[in-house]
Design a protein around this nucleic acid. Structure first.
Lengths: 342, 342
DNA sequence: CTGAAAGCGCTTACAG
DNA sequence: CTGAAAGCGCTTACAG
């Protein structure tokens, strides 16, 4: 039951602890036969390096941290996090890095966790997600000396390398598509306005509408829940001059919109086109299947992890621009009523 | 930038490192005035205990591990994990424990991760989830001496304490409800047959049908994806003597079933009653809203964490039975066609 | 190639 | 109440 140490191996092998250290770390200083015999004893004993002892020698903690600051009620239905984490993991595990996960409720508590993690040498670096406009975290983290990558646009990553995908590009693609179909009144049910990528989409939407020569889109901000999405959709649809197309910032709100449309006796897509963001399997189990923008979130997580590990190794890391989310038309978009043959 | 140590504090305070240790850990051995001055210096310097150094003194790693072994494509849409984790976190964070998260693909690799974590002293204990019939993990983990709790039924937890909710009870409740409505042909679209709780539901379903005096339910096992759920549902609905009610083992498959019904021109609930398991917000954004069984998954995570920490403290931990999932009827269940007035 | 020493940052036990 | 020592399990530098 007692976990073996290098001293145990040294005793069994009849050599010094130092020789064991050299042998096990593939350092010169022991003969090949000694090395082999030490290794086989280590194997037999099931020896593993004590991570605390290693970390104490100026070594790394061999762990990175991720703090999630979304309210519990939206977390479960937001596929982003688990997909992102699984991409992160794919890189970490092959480098034997561990991932520390923590939930937080406020920006301050998130910063406090970083401070503690770094002070306690529990992590070698962190991922910053859900960047906000005027986010204080990048500069605070930078000041701590804690290696970190910002998973978000360079505009708000401050001194940290940004791993980002260009949401503006996706917005333009959606609007051009809808405009070509003939839509003139587009609305968007968005995420929280404090999130940087929400703002970027907001701005891109204004610009894209102008470029397409259509009226500025109405934007309603929500907390990403299906409930809030349904309320926002309902408000849009009972207003005079209701939109003929609505773009949603996640998929659960888009699904909720299907129900609201049904409630109001509107047919999708004949009476209303719907576009979802970041398609999860959910968009394909409903009818009609939802037109959505899609990107490889796991790959996004993997790049972020690569960048963070490189930063920890002391390499210089540049901003990395991932592929943007591409529009995939499915069954929830079509030309608006006044542009279809009667 | 250099993170301060006790030696730095000792120098500033003009005392020995030991005095600093006593002062900061609220141990006797220093005067109250010295203690206060040491503490204020520590504060000012932003000192945090080096977790590696602490762990090396026979102390704890102050971390517990969770390994998730579901394929990436089902992870994102399965709200269980994030809700469970957020419950776990609520307990861990107030005790300053960290959570290490790792993905694995096979049982063997999962066991290997446990072996490594424990050997490296990275964790003080682990959660075992998704217990299987004849699961080897409990006995292997027990043999390692690694403290662990099994998040699953006692039948398969072996020597480990089980934190579980009685799925059988929920199955009985559902079947009694459907039987009272007049349903005689019930089917179930289930999760993977290797999972212990799938088997428990299978067995309970047989028993419940017998007790209700109705034909044994047809059960189709799936991998929990919406796709597989849709296929299973379709197969059930085009068979002769199709069921009048189907119970699903998660919510995404139940949502997929709505689409299949629509595809086959069946009305929910008039032609087919649908029951989902472990309702997430998803069940309430579709129309009709899904009747579902519901339980407090975060509370489940919290109990599991409490139990694991107690075990780590050396306390004896008994099996803990959480409340079972309760049936909440919504819009997707009603009497079958032949039991309604014409 | 091999050995004994020092040190990482803490805690614990043991003298004064 | 205060001080100097030993040790946790490793690694790194420095002699032989």
């Amino acid at each position: 039951m007692k976990r073996p140490t290098m001293a145990d191996i040294a005793r069994r092998a009849g050599v010094s602890k130092v020789a064991v250290s050299y042998a096990l770390n593939d350092q010169p200083g022991v003969s090949e036969t000694t090395r082999a015999s030490i290794k086989s004893i280590a194997d037999e004993l099931g020896w593993r390096p004590n991570s605390a002892a290693r970390a104490l020698n100026g070594g790394r903690a061999q762990a990175v941290g991720l703090i999630v600051r979304r309210p519990a009620r939206t977390l479960g239905v937001e596929p982003f996090f688990m997909e992102f984490i699984s991409g992160v993991e794919s890189v970490l595990s092959e480098r034997s890095y561990a991932l520390m996960l923590q939930m937080a409720t406020t920006l301050d508590s998130e910063i406090e966790v970083c401070r503690r993690w770094w002070g306690e040498r529990r992590v070698d670096g962190v991922f910053l997600i859900d960047l906000q406009a005027d986010d204080v975290r990048p500069s605070v983290i930078e000041a701590l000396g804690l290696p970190a990558v910002a998973v978000g646009p360079p505009e708000v990553s401050g001194p940290l390398p940004a791993i980002w995908s260009d949401d503006g590009e996706s917005v333009h693609e959606i609007v051009r598509y809808l405009a070509v179909l003939g839509h003139r009144r587009i609305a968007r049910v968005a995420g929280p306005p404090e999130l940087a990528h929400t703002r970027i989409r907001d701005a891109a939407l204004r610009e894209a509408c102008r470029e397409a020569g259509i009226a500025p889109a109405t934007v309603v901000h929500t907390d990403y829940t299906g409930d809030a999405g349904a309320r926002a959709t309902r408000a849009l649809l009972i207003a005079p001059d209701r939109p003929t197309a609505i773009v949603f910032d996640n998929d659960i709100m888009a699904v909720a919109a299907l129900s609201v449309a049904q409630e109001l006796n509107l047919t999708i897509p004949a009476d209303l086109s719907i576009v979802a963001w970041d398609e999860s399997p959910l968009t394909q189990v409903v009818r009609p299947m939802l037109s959505a923008v899609t990107r490889d979130i796991a790959a996004y997580g993997a790049s972020s992890a690569e960048a963070l590990l490189a930063l920890i190794e002391g390499e210089e890391v540049m901003d990395i621009r991932e592929g943007y989310a591409r529009f995939v038309p499915r069954g929830s978009t079509c030309p608006p009523p006044d542009r279809r043959p009667v």
